[in-house]
Write a protein that binds this DNA or RNA. Structure first.
Ligand SMILES: [Mn+2]
Ligand SMILES: [Mn+2]
Ligand SMILES: [Mn+2]
Ligand SMILES: [Mn+2]
Lengths: 224, 224
DNA sequence: CTTAAAATTTAGGCTAGTCTAAATTTTTGT
DNA sequence: ACAAAAATTTAGACTAGCCTAAATTTTAAG
């Protein structure tokens, strides 16, 4: 009934979940997992056999894997814990948004349903983590946000900054240094044909230039 | 310089620290550790060799072990984390004092100095955990509490309940069921020669009988 | 359709942490 | 002081997770 899932196995399941959504394909390949986790492909194959044994993934040799319902539930729960802990670290302990990921990578493996339920309540049942990523609910339901990178909007106008694609420390610090936070209003004033850079006003401040690389990692919704 | 210490190694160091204080002897034996951790003695011997290799313990085969300064610092830090997390679980998440130990056993291995420093501040730099155990400070200093079990006081009079010897769920639940909490005032009204049981008034309530077994696990200070 | 390249799996090996059984050392009782 | 008992260590084995090198399968290119 209640198979024990190790910390390592949880990380593989999370990787498979993340990759399948990243590439919008149901099947994830051995090499994709190997790249993502910085393990060798042979190591991944070993683990895939174990996960299949435990009925956490569907695995056809050479054809890639996808999560079973049980595997998906496990992955979602780890992601829920990760994001709730990130909210805790930022909202309660005043960490900056670029400092919390590594600590949450550890905390996400703490095993106690009661703990998560109480933490969720303590934090006010948040719907999003500090990076704008949606937090799955206790039943494993995840509100898919259909926000689009700023650079894919080819029109001038007003947008709300709701999340990031890139989660690296340097990128998050860069956004902080230009004074950009989740929820800010972005007014696109110019789009440069030449290098696809954007001239943007943040809230009511002075305008700045966003390179296409920056614009491609900023998720926005059209302002209502 | 900075040797990595595994979760398992941390648990051995904590066990050695705890046992050496429990029996008030500097040397801890292989069998004591083996009993405490529910591992076989041969397993313990293996680990002792590894800990000695890493200069975390002084180990003389057949003669027992004691912590080096580095080993002691590591153990104290784990205990500090354990007790701070217990305070968090009780004070912030409203867990009961008999529910937190297992979760803290996991949380104590989360590795981030910044996290502990901020958690400590968030909790108001508490000096004691929910069971009355002192919390080591950030420099590894531990205020040794010289509280004595109630049954060792052979006199009637007033005492303050400051901690427990026994930490089991059942014992803690028993204390809760008789309405006893840390900080309560205990007025010993009778000591029965026959079975060494105690007639005690908690705060200003009705008197109750404490068996000697209960009295031996309740740490008290003489009321000032 | 055939073959070279890429992806994946298999084979064999390593470490940490556990075990059982056997050997060794220390302690204890007379 | 010495034998029996208790404590401890050694020897050998196992699993989870990792690796490299070699074999196999799939994919892509001509
Ligand atoms: Mn994160
Ligand atoms: Mn996040
Ligand atoms: Mn505890
Ligand atoms: Mn405690």
């Amino acid at each position: 009934m209640c198979v024990i899932i190790s910390l390592t196995e949880e990380n593989y399941l999370k990787a498979i979940y993340t990759l399948s959504h990243l590439f919008e394909e149901s099947e994830v390949s051995t090499n994709q997992i190997s790249d993502h986790l910085n393990n060798k492909a042979a190591t991944v194959t070993d683990m895939l056999k174990r996960l299949a044994e435990k009925k956490l993934i569907h695995y056809i040799p050479y054809q890639g894997v996808k999560l079973t319902e049980k595997g998906r539930q496990t992955a979602i729960k780890v992601i829920r814990k990760h994001r709730l802990w990130e909210v805790f670290l930022v909202d309660k302990l005043q960490f900056k948004w670029d400092e919390v990921h590594e600590i949450a990578e550890q905390l996400e493996h703490i095993n106690s349903d009661e703990l998560i339920q109480r933490l969720d309540k303590f934090l006010g049942k948040p719907k999003f983590d500090p990076h704008g990523d949606p937090i799955p609910d206790a039943n494993g339901q995840l509100n898919v946000v259909k926000a689009i990178p700023l650079n894919q909007h080819k029109i001038k106008g007003q947008f709300t900054f709701v999340g990031v694609c890139e989660h690296s420390k340097t990128f998050l610090q860069h956004l902080t240094s230009i004074g950009l936070k989740i929820g800010d209003v972005l007014k696109v004033e110019e789009i440069n044909e030449f290098d696809n850079s954007f001239k943007v006003k943040i809230n009511k401040n002075n305008s700045q230039f966003f390179s296409n690389k920056v614009a491609s990692n900023i998720l926005v919704e059209i302002k209502k």
